[in-house]
Simulated assay, not measured.
Amino acid sequence: MLQLGHEEFERLVIDELDLLPDDMVDGLDNVIFVVEDRPESGELDTLGLYDGVALTERGQYGFGEMPDRIVVFREPLLELCADLEDLRDQVHITLVHEIAHFYGIDDDRLHDLGWG
């Protein structure tokens, strides 16, 4: 398993987030990005999670709402990847996948687009 501490992994996620196209991230409103070691279930098959209400599902959404969260799970990604380059690629894919959920794109459509 690839070894990378929490702070180093968090820096890698921030670097990959900075590389995403502006038109993908500019529309993210009231969203925070979080790095956690693993999902609550302890399983290592979930790489990321969008925790919120998709843009397409929102009715009245206004001031005072708790932010949506995009969570990137460190241990499952490290378990999956053989080297740092692979990790960067997988973090990139995970970020795009979870951001797509914010915009209301479901897993089937992501799969059709090659991101699922």
Rank of each mutant, 00 (worst) to 15 (best):
V53N: 08
L47T: 05
L55G: 07
D68W: 10
R58I: 11
A54H: 00
F63R: 14
D68C: 12
V35G: 04
L55E: 13
V35C: 06
V53R: 11
F63L: 15
E57T: 08
E65V: 13
T46Y: 02
G62Q: 11
L47Y: 13
D45Y: 02
Q60R: 11
Y61F: 14
A54L: 00
L44F: 01
G42P: 04
Y50A: 06
T56P: 00
G52K: 08
I70T: 07
L47S: 07
G42C: 02
E36G: 03
L44G: 05
L49N: 06
E43W: 00
D37H: 04
D45A: 01
L55Q: 13
E57V: 05
F73S: 04
R74L: 03
G59F: 09
G62S: 13
I70A: 12
F73M: 06
E43V: 00
D37C: 02
L47F: 14
R74C: 03
Y50W: 13
Q60I: 10
E36L: 07
L55I: 14
E57R: 13
E40P: 03
R74A: 02
G62F: 11
V53Q: 13
D51Q: 12
D45K: 02
G52T: 08
D51L: 12
P39D: 10
T46K: 05
I70R: 09
V35H: 03
V71W: 05
V53E: 15
E40T: 02
P39F: 06
D37G: 06
R74M: 04
E57H: 11
L49C: 10
R69W: 06
R38T: 03
V35M: 03
G62N: 11
G42E: 01
P67L: 11
Q60P: 09
F73P: 06
G62Y: 09
V71I: 15
L55K: 14
D45T: 08
E40Y: 02
G48R: 07
T56E: 06
F73Q: 04
A54N: 00
L49E: 10
E36H: 06
L47W: 05
T56Q: 07
G62D: 12
G52W: 10
E40H: 03
E36D: 11
R74D: 01
G59N: 07
Y50R: 07
R69N: 11
G42A: 06
A54C: 00
D68R: 08
G59L: 09
Y61I: 12
T46Q: 08
G64Y: 11
G42F: 03
R74E: 01
G48K: 07
P39Q: 08
P39R: 05
R74Q: 07
Q60M: 08
T56F: 01
G52Q: 10
T46P: 00
L55P: 04
E40M: 02
Q60K: 09
V35W: 02
G64S: 14
G48D: 06
T56D: 06
S41D: 08
V35A: 05
A54P: 00
T56S: 14
V53D: 10
Y61E: 14
D45S: 08
L47I: 05
Y50M: 10
G62A: 12
